[in-house]
């Protein structure tokens, strides 16, 4: 009976891609196309962006969307479209980095726990319990309070927070896999445990793990953007989307909505699209097993 905010959210998001309906295929293609466009825009940001994302123009602050600035400008007159396009790099690389960290640690821990059982397994369960005692992002907030705000701290802290989730998932997959006869066959032949894990066990789990990571990506993006929004992640003059929303917040009261809504929409659209595509990819990878 432990609440686990990230994982419950994940199980919810998995249904989005499975929702059956007439528009299901269409939604899949639109989402996929949108994600490809976003990734391309991030890679070729200097070519795609119409202006320098950090070019300040105090004569032109909070300009509405128009011919000069398609999505308007922010409180320093910077072009919002260019900032969003450049910000895509940090906004997408951050979750990728934290998932790489979390999966390196988590897969190692989970595999070890399933392979060795005994105290390693108990230790993993205890660590997980303590992590889950902190609701939501509070563990990450503690780490940031100690080591200071910044993108690196935020990514590492989130990576640590995601580790037990991935470890737990890996453990369950590994336990099922270890029960299969081929593992015993290698053991009987005298192949060492390390070799079995690295060469057979982990590769055989890879599709399931990859599918799970794809689903977690949206979660990672949301969490990282939230930290930046609170001022704990990316720092100015970065154009990370969460930070852009925070900077745009002050304009809301003045009736200027674009600076906050543009990056906010970018986050929401990417997460939604990712959940739609991600669940499909996860299903495909799982069914191939």
């Amino acid at each position: 009976m432990t609440a686990q905010t990230p994982t419950t959210a994940v199980t919810v998001s998995t249904d989005l891609g499975r929702a059956r309906g007439s528009g299901e295929r269409g939604a899949l293609w639109v989402s996929g196309g949108f994600l490809v466009a976003v990734v391309l825009a991030a890679v070729f940001a200097p070519l795609v962006a119409p202006a320098d994302p950090n070019a300040i123009d105090f004569g032109n602050i909070w300009a509405p969307p128009g011919a000069d600035h398609w999505l308007g400008t922010d409180q320093m007159g910077r072009d919002l479209l260019s900032r969003v396009v450049h910000g895509a790099r940090e906004s997408l690389l951050g979750p990728l980095a934290l998932l790489l960290l979390a999966s390196a640690l988590g897969v190692a821990m989970g595999t070890l726990a399933a392979w060795r059982r005994g105290w390693v397994d108990v230790l993993l369960a205890r660590v997980t319990d303590v992590m889950y005692a902190f609701p939501g992002l509070l563990f990450v907030v503690l780490v940031i309070a100690v080591f200071g705000s910044g993108m690196t701290t935020a990514v590492v802290a989130l990576g640590l927070a995601f580790t037990p989730i991935i470890a737990k998932f890996t453990r369950s997959v590994a336990l099922a896999e270890c029960a299969k006869p081929y593992i015993d066959a290698y053991r009987v032949q005298g192949v060492s445990g390390l070799v079995i894990c690295l060469r057979y066990l982990i590769p055989n789990m890879a599709p399931a793990l990859l599918g799970y990571l794809v689903v977690l990506f949206g979660e990672g993006l949301m969490s990282l953007a939230t930290l930046s929004f609170l001022g704990f992640g990316a720092q100015p003059p970065s154009s990370e989307w969460g930070l852009m929303v925070q900077e745009g917040q002050s304009a809301l009261i003045q009736g200027v909505l674009w600076p906050a809504l543009v990056p906010g929409a970018a986050i929401a659209l990417v997460v939604v699209a990712f959940n739609i595509v991600g669940v499909r990819v996860a299903d495909r990878l799982n069914s191939r097993r």
């Binding site: 998001s13 929702a19 997460v271 939604v272």
Partner: peptide, 30 residues
């Protein structure tokens, strides 16, 4: 059933602070 499932999951995919900004913009400011 499909509409409720799709609608609620879609809403859950939007980070709460983005939703907050959208709500402020629409119902508070506009």
């Amino acid at each position: 059933d499909a509409a409720v499932t799709a609608g609620t999951t879609l809403a859950a995919s939007v980070p709460s602070f983005v939703l907050a900004i959208a709500l402020i913009s629409l119902f508070g400011v506009r």
